[in-house]
Simulated assay, not measured.
Amino acid sequence: MIRLLPALALAAIATAATAQVGPPTSQRPCSANRQLVLKEGAVVLDTGPNTYARFVKGAGECLVDQFPEPAWVPSSNNPQCFIGYRCRDSSDEF
């Protein structure tokens, strides 16, 4: 059991490191934000103080019962930067 604790601690640190989000979208140019979404396919970004959202490049990144909805975020050079899409549930009300 004692040998297992260091392994669990390392796993927790590794998981926390991969879950880190980069600088807010408002601190990067619009094109850099968009390129990140296109490159990764799906990414969680910091959109403001304590606000995070998942953005995707297209419908292929959404679940079967979801659809892509255009998304805009603030960037350093554009307050309404088209970044890609957010997946919405088909049961969501507008």
Rank of each mutant, 00 (worst) to 15 (best):
F94K: 03
L38K: 14
G58N: 13
P24L: 10
N50E: 14
V43K: 01
E61N: 11
P29F: 03
E69F: 09
C62K: 04
K39M: 09
G60I: 06
Q66K: 02
T15I: 12
C81D: 03
G22D: 13
E69N: 10
T51V: 11
A53H: 12
Y85D: 03
S76E: 02
D65C: 05
N50I: 01
S90Y: 08
T51E: 15
D92H: 09
A7P: 03
A11E: 06
D46P: 00
T47N: 03
S90P: 00
L5R: 06
N78Y: 06
L5N: 03
P74F: 02
V37C: 07
Q20L: 14
R54G: 05
V73H: 01
F55Q: 00
P79Y: 04
E40Q: 15
T51M: 13
M1S: 13
C62E: 04
Q20E: 12
P49F: 15
C87A: 05
S31I: 14
C62Y: 03
P68G: 08
F67D: 07
G48N: 06
P68W: 07
T15N: 12
A19M: 14
L45N: 00
D46K: 07
S76C: 06
G84R: 00
S91P: 00
A59I: 10
A42W: 02
A11N: 07
L10E: 01
S91I: 10
V21S: 09
L38F: 07
R34E: 05
A53L: 09
A53G: 09
S26N: 09
N77Y: 04
A7M: 14
A7L: 15
A7D: 05
G60W: 04
Q66F: 06
S31Q: 15
A32F: 10
D46L: 05
W72M: 10
G58T: 05
F67A: 05
Y85S: 01
G58Q: 06
R88I: 02
L10C: 14
S90W: 11
